[in-house]
Amino acid sequence: MKLRRIIACLLIGLAVLLLGARWVAPHGYEQQFRDFIAASPTKEFPLGTDALGRDRLARLLYGSRLSLLLAPAAAAVSVFLAALIGGLAAFAGKRWERAILLATDLTLSLPWLFLILTIRGAMPLDVQPEISVLITFLVLGLLGWAGPARVVRAGVKKIIASDFVFQANAMGTPPRRIFFHYILPNVRPLLFAQFWISLPVFILSEANLGAMGLSVSEPMPSWGNLLRELESQTSALEHPLQNWWLLAPIVLLVGVVSLLQVWQQRPKGSL
């Protein structure tokens, strides 16, 4: 419990810092300094500048803010859809259940990244950066429902079969009241668990998509875009100690995802 509290404090602190990126970052993420192209760290640019003369620290802060705010939003969309679809499968009779299970099987039969890549590729690529952000995270949210929906369906079915729901039914409680007062409160922990499980998956998926040039459009930064920039820095990265500032996005990405992984880890012995 103590570890979870420390992690929560770290994540909240980071979120506050990133929300205040406008005040913390010394420059704007798209502001170019043509006299400081690919510069090493200085007082003015603590993490140096990129090949276009943009402040790396500002880009890291704004990029992290984007990934850290929108990944939870995408996870919330996918869990909401999973709750609707999984709940319907458990509640609405055999036919619906079979149809929904077939749809989940179909979605799960395709590898996750292949599915996102295909759909993201079909979306417009040459759009305004703000729209590209929306598209990227919406695609993640809309396609991530299948796995959690299966879990929600199993959870709701278990609750429906429990003694207290049986008793409520026997007492003539209307189905709507059963759903809102008996099932929903009991399925809520499951939905939260699915949310926390989806979160690192979505952050990593965005990073993978960005590294393939299919995430957020330039000049807006995201962790995926920042990783893509590293692909052109391979010779500098051969000497990581001399060029340590280039590793900052990797360290932050891995650090945050590690915290989230440890946060959502279940007790030993459980699956």
């Binding site: 993978n208 990265l237 995802v257 992984q261």
Partner: peptide, 19 residues
């Protein structure tokens, strides 16, 4: 293994490409 779980495949590929 926790650390490996936090690395996107693209990053692992990039690191192998470099080092």
């Amino acid at each position: 293994t926790n650390l490996l779980l936090c690395l996107p495949a693209a990053l692992m590929a990039l690191l192998l490409l470099i080092w």
